[in-house]
Design a protein around this nucleic acid. Sequence first.
DNA 1: ATGCAATTGCAAATGATTTGCATTATTCCT
DNA 2: AGGAATAATGCAAATCATTTGCAATTGCAT
Lengths: 152, 152
Amino acid sequence: MIGIEQRVAIFEGQLKQAGLRMTQQRRLILRILAEAHDHPDAKGIFTRAFEHDPTLSLSTVYRTMKLLESQGAIERHAFEDGVSRYEHADQQHHDHLIDVETGQVVEFSSPEIEALQAKIAAELGYEIVRHRLELYARKLPKAGRKRVKKDV
Amino acid sequence: MIGIEQRVAIFEGQLKQAGLRMTQQRRLILRILAEAHDHPDAKGIFTRAFEHDPTLSLSTVYRTMKLLESQGAIERHAFEDGVSRYEHADQQHHDHLIDVETGQVVEFSSPEIEALQAKIAAELGYEIVRHRLELYARKLPKAGRKRVKKDV
DNA sequence: ATGCAATTGCAAATGATTTGCATTATTCCT
DNA sequence: AGGAATAATGCAAATCATTTGCAATTGCAT
Ligand SMILES: [Mn+2]
Ligand SMILES: [Mn+2]
Ligand SMILES: [Zn+2]
Ligand SMILES: [Zn+2]
């Protein structure tokens, strides 16, 4: 995981090569994403960024997300509710488990599952380009965990 | 896989128990879905049904899909493009591979993957409620397949 | 056949995302 | 530093799939 400053610098380089410009808004949004440890949606990113720059618009957030995605700087996920959520792309590939009660997103990665997916695709005569694996799950009662009150 | 008439009868019974009514539109849409061998979206279902009943409205399709889903008669999927696609629920659980070139949807099922998912969830302290597994893939050149013309 | 509640069709509302356009900001070049 | 060229922004309006309010219709139990 590289630092935020480096991330900004790298992105600025990519922009320059594409004839695009590094703006205050892009810098800010990129920073917000680099600092985020969750999977915020556009509005969430906007809200956080807005505190640093109250002139920022939601349109710019959307446009920037698209740009960042096209540059491979972030990843976009659409979980069950349909809204796009984002995360920076500087981590190894992983999939997500979503707690259906709390909405909490837990990341995991399984080489076995990845291999199995490739095998299945191959058997069907395909090669995987990308995939989506989401587990919607409920917390398991931990053995020895304090009992929940019944019979009030 | 049971017959269409039976499907309609079963659904009518479920409706009666819920104090709901079997209407011409619901009968028609259910039939369309039972005959469908793909994963049509609301507009697609509407188009097919409209040929049998030009007074049908898209709203009714949406309302009916929601009802059918709540009764467990159909399943809803939202692939990458975001629109909801439906299929009847009288088949065994399966996941989908989407051909990124053609959009074709191929069904598959893998007990190994299902087991692996459950194991992963368990290790994280969760029990899976439902999941989503989609492979976006490209057709593999078949060994011995007729060569594509090059150098025209 | 009658009556009431469920359902429908239509149009308008929603909510997330995109887009047109006039204005502003970056870059590049003297 | 100053200016031109044009990319990017903010805002409002447009999209697009889906939902919803409401008045008119229909299904179904009596
Ligand atoms: Mn993640
Ligand atoms: Mn299917
Ligand atoms: Zn994966
Ligand atoms: Zn599965």
